[in-house]
Structures are given as structure tokens and as C-alpha cells.
Design a protein around this nucleic acid. Structure first.
Lengths: 240, 240
DNA sequence: GTGCGTCCTGCATGAAACCGCAACTCGTTG
DNA sequence: CAACGAGTTGCGGTTTCATGCAGGACGCAC
């Protein structure tokens, strides 16, 4: 068995290397990449079917890389190993997992034991292993109450990118009013209001901007999600 | 000599521990904290005058912790050890360094050698050591051209928080028009325009929101800066 | 089918935001 | 002192946002 490690922090990389060797005696080769681009290339060259991937990397993040890799070979098994359980990451990963693929999501704060178990479960047993904390988010994200529908998340991203209502309408093939409707729902769910409860007369918040801030603070959005969305936006702009 | 290490990642923490022991034979005690709060407490209890501090920590980030520590004992020497050289961090650190304090800013990507040199320079020689990459940012941030004045940065933060022009005016004791003026300057410097160069007729961007996005993408803002700004805002809101 | 809920859409209005024009205040420089 | 530049402020006009009201389309359950 060959395992590819994609991780930009050298300390974490060597820790992973050791963990992989210890957990998987059947693994004879460990390859390392220090960013998403190199990871994609190595995955292609070596046809590696077993990958441990960091999410947050400077050059090209783990979600991008995983998407590209799964596009070529959907049966690839990927264990995401991340510092954070931001909803933005969880959403990002869920969005790209191919049907029936075996994958995992383990936090870096997990114990050695947990990491090794996850490695064996995914790479040997083809089981999905999702950290319980992440799992919680996923389910909250599915359950109807208090969560965001895809369309609400979509407008959230669009206003975060700085698009006008009109531009969003064109991009998503909607009427202006529908876009504004979705924004209403978004504001409701994020619980942003123009005025404070204390003094309903002075409006303090620009809802559109405030919604983005709140989403950031709640980790519905993060830098890497923004980066991805911006890249997609630029593509769309080119096509007009 | 006693050294306090404040760092949330266990791997990095033990790496630092070793580096400190190797670089500073005169150091007899190394204390560790895994977040900003514990760090502050230990700094107070042990009166530690030598601290190595991570910036990005979940519970309370390094800038907050450093500010609190320096407030009590401005002669404390702090070496910031960070993954990133975001302008938001650099600005945040510069803002809180007491006059004449010895401090340092070293990136985690620096070599062992560089880290050890920095440790000795700051803790033994009381020299300031700033990573050259960070230094570049600092100077760009001071040089007039292409950079942001404090007042422009201030409005940037305010719109990022989602305040209305009127609210910003009240908060900063300005007229509405002045706030809008600063916003104009901000938009100019961030090079955000409503329309694309290609087709000046269709306006696509909400300048206010777009400015925030661009600032994020350029790392003028980041999560921790937002978090800090939000806390200050909440304080101000309470006082009205 | 009828009724209900959810989503899309048009029209309309008051409040913000964007921005050009112009006057006024300072501190710096010649 | 006069000239200049940078930053503030007021006025006014146009555009975009936020949001209530209401009519229509679609799917699901009874």
C-alpha cells in the first residue's frame, strides 16, 4: 500500500508519517507533498489511492486538491486532517465527496489512537470516519431548523463577494425580488437586525455587511471558502 | 532564566520547548500554556519576562494576551511565532508594542537556526528581531504610497463590522460626509469599482461589501482582527 | 380535487449609500 | 504672509437596499 501525505507544516508532516507507518504495517511507501498543487501532481503520478490531506494550505487548499483528485479517480480514499471544524470547511468537503467514496474527517486535536483507528478504518476497511464534532455540524446543517438551505448559503456567499442584488439575480437566474427574498431569510436566520433592541430608532447596522461579519464570526464562512468563491466568480465574470 | 511558551498546537509546543532549551542554556525553567488565557495567568503568576507566543489560538489569541501582559509589565520580552505574515497581524502587533520594548516576530517557516538566533537576540541581548518578510509589510504599511492610513483602516474595520455610515460617524465623532469621504479613499486604494472595465454599464459590485472582501483576500483583515474589532464594538455599544 | 406550504415574482416606498461640487480649517512650506 | 495640500463638512441628486403587500407556480397530503 502507498500513502500520500499532503500537509504544509513540516512538524505535522513528520508526525503523520510516523502515525501512518505505525498504524499501517502493510504500507510500504509514504510520499509527502507540502501543498495542494504538489499533492495533485503526486497523486496523479503515483495513482495513489490513499491520501491524508490537510485542509488549510497556503498554495492550494485541501478542498481544491481533493476535488481535482476525486474528479480523476473517484474511488480514491482521502482522510482530511484539519485543525478546525468550521462549518465552511465541513460544507466544502461534503459538497465534493463523490457518491459512495470512503473518506474521513479527523481533527488535529484528536488523540494518536483516534488518528490511527481512522487510518485503518478508511484505508483498510473502506469505512467513512467522521469526527463526532464535525458530524454534529453536518447533521445540524441538514436538519431543517436553524440551519441554512443551499440557496441561502448561496446568497450569503454572493453578498460576501460583494455582488449587488442585480448581479446576483443575473448570476443565479432569478428575479431581483427573489434575491432580496432570500436575503430576508438569511438575515432572519443569522439574527441580524438594523436596530438594537434597546433603541429601535437608531439604525446601526448595514444588514448586508453585518450578515457577512456574523457569518464569519460563526465560521459559516472562512478565508478559504471566500477564496474558492472568488475564483468561481472570476470564472463566471469572464464568461459573462 | 524562565521562559513561558504559549502555543496551542502540541507538536509546535514541544518543538519550541526543545528549541528554547537548545538555544538558551541559561534557561532553567520552561513553562507551557496552551491558550492565551492560561498564558496570561502563568505570565502573571510566574512574573515571566520571557515569552514565546503563538498568534492564532482558539481561546484567546496572542495579540490579546500580549496586550494584557504588556499592560501589566511593559518590559516583558515577547517573541511572536506565527504561521502567517498577514498585514492584519502585523498591524495588530505594531499597535500594541510598548515604547522601547524588546520583541520579535518570526515565522514558523523560518529555519531552526533563525529561530534560535531570534531567541538569543531578544531574550539575552534585548534586540528586536523582525522577520524580513514581516518587516517588508511594516514598511510598506508606513510608506505613504499604496498603503492605508490609520483612518482608512478604521473605516475599513467599521464597515467590515457591518456598521452604517451614520453609526460610524457617531462612533468616530465625524460627520456623515466625512465618513463617506474616507470610504471613497478606501475604495480607491483597494481598487474596487462598481463596474467592470469591460462593460461600464452594468454595475456588479456593492462597493461596501466588495471592499471588505478584497481586504480579506489581501489579508488586510483576518478572522482574529474581526474578532477583536467585534469585541471592541460590543463594548462601545454598551456605553452607547 | 382542495387546501396548505414553499418559493418566485412585480410593484411601491422610505432609508442608505455613492459621489460630484464647493466652502472652510489647519499645518506645512516658500 | 501667501500658497498649497490634506482632511472636514454641507448640499443635492441618483442608485441601490430593505421590506410590506399581493398574485402566481409547484409539490405534497388529505
Amino acid at each position: 500500500m502507498k500513502v500520500l501525505i499532503v500537509e504544509d507544516d513540516p512538524l505535522h508532516r513528520s508526525y503523520l508519517h510516523e502515525a501512518v507507518s505505525a498504524a499501517l504495517p502493510e504500507c510500504d511507501t509514504v510520499i509527502e507533498a507540502e501543498n495542494g498543487i504538489a499533492g495533485e501532481r503526486l497523486a496523479r503520478d503515483h495513482r495513489s489511492a490513499h491520501i491524508v490531506m490537510d485542509l488549510q494550505m497556503a498554495n492550494r487548499n485541501g478542498i481544491e486538491a481533493a476535488r481535482a483528485i476525486w474528479k480523476e479517480r473517484p474511488e480514491t480514499r482521502i482522510l482530511f486532517w484539519s485543525n478546525y471544524s468550521d462549518e465552511a470547511y465541513v460544507r466544502g468537503v461534503s459538497r465534493i465527496v463523490p457518491d459512495g467514496a470512503a473518506y474521513g474527517y479527523v481533527l488535529k486535536s484528536a488523540s494518536d489512537e483516534r488518528l490511527k483507528l481512522a487510518l485503518r478504518s478508511i484505508f483498510v476497511e473502506s469505512q467513512c470516519v467522521i469526527d463526532r464534532e464535525v458530524r454534529g455540524l453536518q447533521q445540524k446543517s441538514l436538519s431543517h431548523a436553524r440551519s441554512f438551505t443551499d440557496s441561502e448559503y448561496e446568497v450569503l456567499v454572493d453578498i460576501a463577494l460583494g455582488l449587488t442584488d442585480r448581479a446576483i439575480a443575473r448570476r443565479r437566474n432569478l428575479s431581483l425580488r427573489s434575491v432580496q427574498n432570500r436575503l430576508q431569510h438569511l438575515y432572519d436566520k443569522l439574527e441580524v437586525y438594523q436596530t438594537t433592541a434597546a433603541d429601535p430608532d437608531d439604525s446601526r447596522f448595514n444588514l448586508r455587511a453585518r450578515a457577512v461579519t456574523v457569518a464569519f464570526l460563526r465560521k459559516l464562512l472562512n478565508y478559504s471558502a471566500l477564496e474558492r468563491a472568488e475564483a468561481e466568480l472570476q470564472d463566471w465574470l469572464r464568461e459573462h
